[in-house]
């Protein structure tokens, strides 16, 4: 039924930047298969005439705010909680080759 195999789990782990052990992979294949099976049940319902639901709150709309600057510069506080910072920048492992 389900299309979840070790390869799918590996791909998802890569996309999510998660390290997954061989043992965990087996568990995840099993668990995700159960999730997908449940989703498959939902998908078996005919929804041809049903409007896609964008939000659980019917007819609500997202609030909007005026275009005004309400935040002040708190750079030093934010940089202080980063693993590494210098010269006003966050420092991260090199992201290009």
């Amino acid at each position: 039924m389900s299309i979840i195999d070790t390869k799918t789990v590996e791909k998802l782990a890569k996309l999510s930047r998660l390290k997954v052990t061989e043992e965990e992979k087996t568990i995840l294949v099993h668990e995700l298969t159960k999730v997908m099976d449940m989703a498959a049940k939902v998908q078996s319902v005919n929804t041809d005439a049903v409007q896609p639901m964008t939000s659980v709150i019917e007819n609500a709309q997202t609030p909007e705010r005026d275009d005004a600057v309400s935040e002040e510069n708190r750079r030093e506080e934010y940089l202080a909680i980063a693993p590494k910072a210098e010269m006003g920048f966050y420092v991260v492992p090199r992201s290009v080759e």
Partner: peptide
């Protein structure tokens, strides 16, 4: 924005 040629070799600098 990421800057790759600032400071140490193995790092990138990020301006948000």
């Amino acid at each position: 924005k990421s800057i790759h040629d600032l400071g140490e070799d193995r790092h990138s600098h990020v301006d948000l």
